[in-house]
Design a binder for these strands. Structure first.
Lengths: 153, 153
DNA sequence: CCTGAAATCTTACGTAA
DNA sequence: TTACGTAAGATTTCAGG
């Protein structure tokens, strides 16, 4: 399950991150394998969990999600129990698309995606109402210059 | 090209963001359409650009990209020319997976994904060498609690 | 709803590193 | 041993009519 990826695997993953809807034949030709060999590697990568699934890449704005906000959060409490409910609370809010525990003068960093300011405000209320936070600093994205590029391999 | 999405479209997009590799039949059944009707909507969503493509969802750690860093950047210069070269420079660095122009006491926010600290340091050098930056504050992700969830629709 | 064409999945066997 | 190639067939899905 934890075999290391070789160069061929990385080539396949790179191609799949760019466009996964191409036929196995075309993909196989690109990376330099037969369709059959590619199929076997694909299956291995899927069952080992390196490939978690396949998803549609959407135009965020066209999908009506125009606003991106990054919120840096400093918390007041740090017990295991509190942390659990903190995580559960944020998981219940779909607009919180990312949550990282970070180093530095803040404890967590949230990426929030909504339709507009009003939507963000509702999320903000929901985030803060239930949790005792010491400080929240929000950075509004004015422009997405590079957005969610492939994981570098 | 700019027709609004109706509830059925959103249902389809929601399903596709969760798992796009399922058959049109299964998908159609889920959202309450015939395979044929789904196919027409899919084609429309693809040609209108709402769906930009399809991609494999990878396990970042398993793919060997263990380190995530968010860097807040304050710039010294702001001319159109400089901005162009700033963008081009960062686009040339694949480890910079996101770049947003933001409001607040910083000008830009970078998301950088690398294998380890050494890799991050190389990227950091590359980012800062060519550009006159006033300040850079980096937050290292200690733990990814929620990562890149679907765009809320 | 129906269908021809295409793609996927699977097995089997021979070969090369 | 481990991975690859070819080949061929069964099955499923696609892309429309």
């Amino acid at each position: 399950m934890a075999e290391k990826l070789d160069e061929m695997d990385r080539r396949i993953l790179r191609a799949l991150q760019i466009e996964s809807s191409r036929s196995q034949r075309a993909l196989a030709e690109d990376v330099g394998l037969s369709q059959n060999a590619l199929w076997r590697r694909l299956k291995a990568l899927e069952t080992s969990g390196v490939i978690k699934g396949y998803t549609a890449r959407l135009d965020r704005e066209a999908a009506g999600a125009s606003l991106v906000v990054f919120s840096m959060v400093k918390t007041r409490r740090h017990s295991a129990d509190w942390l659990r409910s903190f995580r559960a609370h944020l998981e219940s809010i779909p607009e919180v698309v990312s949550l990282y525990r970070i180093s530095g003068d803040f404890d967590y960093m949230l990426k929030i995606v909504t339709h507009d300011i009003a939507g963000f405000d509702r999320v903000y209320q929901r985030v803060t109402e239930k949790l005792e936070l010491e400080a929240v600093t929000s950075y509004f994205a004015m422009e997405a210059m590079i957005e969610d590029r492939p994981i570098p391999l």
